[in-house]
Each structure stands twice: as C-alpha cells, then as structure tokens.
C-alpha cells in the first residue's frame, strides 16, 4: 500500500510567476499560472491559498483577483516575514508551490438585494478586492455599495488607482482615510471606523464585511453596531498562524473554530463570545 498524491492535501502544485507588480514599498502582487499549463483557478471571494517558496516555507495568502475572470491566479502580499520576504525577491519566470483554495468565503450571494458595506484596513483590502470585482460584475443585484478604507499614511494606500476609479463611479461610495497625513494628502485623516458613522447606507438592511487588523475590526464592529447593523449581518476575516490550512496542525484555533476551515470569514455572532477574550 502506498499513498496517492492526488489525495494528499499537503502536496503543493508548482505554479510559475507570470507577472509581478510593486504596489507599495513593502507590498506586491503576483500573477501565477500552473506550470502544467493555463487553467482557470476557481475560488470564492475571501478564500486563501498556501504559497510555498522552495526551501523557505509556506504561508497563507488571500486571493486578491477577480473570481469571475479566467486569467491567472492573483495574490497581493505584504512582506512581513521570512516567506513573504522571499516571495518579494522572486521574479517572473520563477516558480512557487500553491495549495488551495481553502476556507470560507464572503457571503456575496446572501448579500444580494441589500446594501453592502466593506470596511477594510491596510493590506486587508486585498482579500476584499474579489468581493468588489464580484459586486461590480453583478452591480444590479445589490443596493448601495460602500467601500471604506483606512491606511497608515497616503503612501500606504493599496490599489490607489483602482480606488480612484471606483470612487469616480456613481454606483459606488468610496471613502478613504489615513491615520497620519503626509505630503499633499488632502483627504480624510483618522481611523477608518470614523468613516462608518457618515457613510450612506441603510443600517437595518446592510451587510458589512470587515477585514483588517484585529483591533480595527473590533472598533469597526462597535461602530457598525452603533449605526444599527446587527451582529448577524457583520462578517469578519480572522487571521491566525497556519501551517496546514486543512485542520491538522492546530495552530489557527480560535476557540472552538479553526480559522483555516471554519473561517477565515466568520459571521460575527459565531465568534462574538471569544472575540473579546484576551489572547485567544
């Protein structure tokens, strides 16, 4: 008896880097395609892959591309550790290992017919971009669509050109704030949660998707609650250490949940009890 490769969820598939784009000083986007030849990489908005760098290691990275597009697999990555630093040094023609897609998705279907509020911070805009693409492709299915984004400084605003394009549309409300203004920034200054107070949406019928640092999500939920958005209509994308993405390694446990397979996207009322507990 021996193990069959196809059944092993820990086995990565080699992908080649087609293109690489610098987004910010520490953030970049990779477009990947299977080395075996082009194939549409099916995923749902909010899902992630495990990206492997030869001899270095493997990390979970959300997919930042368009779920309805047949093109390459797109990941936007901030270099914050050994593997993401190694990914930053890679160039087109190089190869990485890919396992996935894994995890739960933003419930874009059940949000149909409602106002959609996206609250994002920092590189948290990357896992939300597939939602934005999907909503724009199916714009008539949604009510008001609000994108609220916060970055540390104007130089840290991710997908800046796209945000400007989206802001210029009449069927989207886009508001951006920075923690600290520099240079010629004439936009809003302050935490992203402040944007929730003044955004135009119907709090009693809106669905909110929140992705960013945990502390930002904490205050976002508070601000959404204060506007009248119920916990059952708030979704968060959680982050924990992950080694396997399939529930074997135990690292990503968050109370009774595995962030890798029960999350990363959780309906807030499912994690409300543990979200406020220290060091879970």
């Amino acid at each position: 008896m021996s193990l069959t490769a196809a059944a092993d969820p820990m086995l990565p598939e080699p992908f080649g880097i087609l293109r690489k784009r610098r987004e910010l000083s520490d953030t970049f986007t990779l477009e990947l395609e299977p080395l075996g030849g082009h194939r549409k990489f099916a995923f749902r908005p909010g899902q992630f892959n495990m990206l492997y760098v030869f001899g270095v290691g493997e990390i979970p990275i959300s997919i930042s591309g368009d779920p309805d597009d047949d093109g390459p697999l797109v990941h936007t990555i901030r270099a914050v550790g050994t593997v993401s630093d190694a990914l930053r040094t890679m160039e087109p023609g190089g190869a990485v290992g890919v396992r996935g897609p894994f995890g739960s998705a933003w419930p874009v279907e059940s949000a149909e017919g409602r106002d959609v509020v996206l609250v994002t911070g920092g590189v948290g805009l990357a896992p939300m971009r597939p939602v934005i693409y999907h909503v724009l492709t199916n714009r008539q299915r949604y009510g008001k669509v609000v994108i609220l984004y916060g970055a540390r400084t104007p130089e840290d605003v991710l997908f800046r050109k796209q945000l400007e394009q989206w802001r210029s549309r009449f069927d989207l409300f886009v508001d951006v704030s920075v923690d600290r203004a520099t240079g010629r920034w004439r936009g809003r200054v302050g935490v992203v949660t402040k944007l929730i107070e003044r955004a135009g949406f119907d709090p009693h019928d809106a669905v909110a998707f929140v992705c960013g640092p945990e502390v930002m999500m904490r205050f976002s939920v508070q601000a959404l609650n204060e506007r009248g958005v119920a916990d059952e209509r708030i979704y968060l994308s959680m982050e924990r250490n992950m080694k396997c993405a399939v529930g074997f390694c135990g690292h990503c446990q968050f109370g009774g949940q595995f962030v890798c397979k029960d999350g990363p996207v959780f309906r807030f009322d499912a994690i409300r009890d543990i979200f406020s507990v220290w060091e879970v």
Binding site: S2, L3, A5, D8, M10, P14, F54, G55, V96, G97
Partner: peptide, 23 residues
C-alpha cells in the same frame, strides 16, 4: 517527511512520498 521538492529547469518539481505504509 511529507514530500520533497527540487529546483527544475523552468521551475519546481514536487515529489510525493510514496513509501509503503507499515501494516
């Protein structure tokens, strides 16, 4: 060992562990 990999021309080759499983 879950699997091994080697640098290959134009990329990366991943080899599954196909050792027999003990009874």
């Amino acid at each position: 060992t879950l699997w091994s990999a080697r640098r290959a021309a134009g990329g990366l080759e991943v080899m599954a562990d196909d050792a027999p499983v003990p009874r």
